[in-house]
Amino acid sequence: MEFLSYLITGISLGSIYAIIALGYTMVYGIAKMLNFAHGDVIMVGGYVSFYVTIFAGNNLLGEDPSALATGAVALVSVLLAMAVCTVLGVVIEGLAYRPLRQAGSLAVLITAIGVSYFLQNAAQLLFGANPKNFTPIVSGQLTLFGGQLRISYVALLTIVACVVIMLGLTAFTGKSRMGKAMRACSEDRGAAQLMGINVNATISMTFAIGSALAAVAGVLLCSYSPVLQPTTGSMPGIKAFTAAVFGGIGSIPGAFLGGLLLGIIEALAQAYISTQLSNSILFAVLIVVLLVKPSGLLGKYVPEKV
């Protein structure tokens, strides 16, 4: 029963990584760049949700708000966080990355790191360096087996959100016109242009989707571990990037699988081996997997015909 509890914690943590990793992997697949500022967009999402909730608590909700009212505030805070992050993502892409479309990948990488620090410092200036105490968007827990197994509603919500997002993205890229255009761009930008696909608009769209997902991840992450500060997004961002590589970067099911496995490994390593060593164990597993399968778990091998 203890094991099951750790496993569920791991799946829930992994779901957060997976949602972040989906953003990484989509941007990588289509824009062919590592957006290291992605983790910091998560942090911005967290702050937006935090301030919306505070504002509503002070101005809109009474002394003893009903569950429905708090739920509505939580939902609105998530939606606003998504809206702000979507705009932020598109602006970052347009101002920082688009001018470098023809530049070498190293220039883009350094710019992404610069954007990451810019966001962290801007957040410090705007919101202060002191950690905020984030109120989880849902509270309470499910008690099973006569109290032997407790699962928080946040964990359940996280897992459900991740599965819904994963299925939604799969359907979007598989069936929709825009999604297919994204896949075409990811394979061959020149050929996509010859089809009449506006590559810049497609890349913008990818950043919009990835950043909206980052906002969701931000709210879920802060609900899971309720300390919000300007560096909140860095470590989960790096782990999610690891998850994306682990699963096979560019692959949507890969990011999902990589995220989940990473979360489970982390939770089990913390529970059974050592809390201090859990990150080392995590990255050791990554290194072993990449040694055996350099393209990641679900990385695609494409046969090329001459």
Binding site: K180, R183, A184, E187, D188, A191, V302
Partner: peptide, 8 residues
């Protein structure tokens, strides 16, 4: 070089 979308 044709440049069809190989994964589609």
């Amino acid at each position: 070089g044709r440049r069809v979308f190989l994964q589609m």
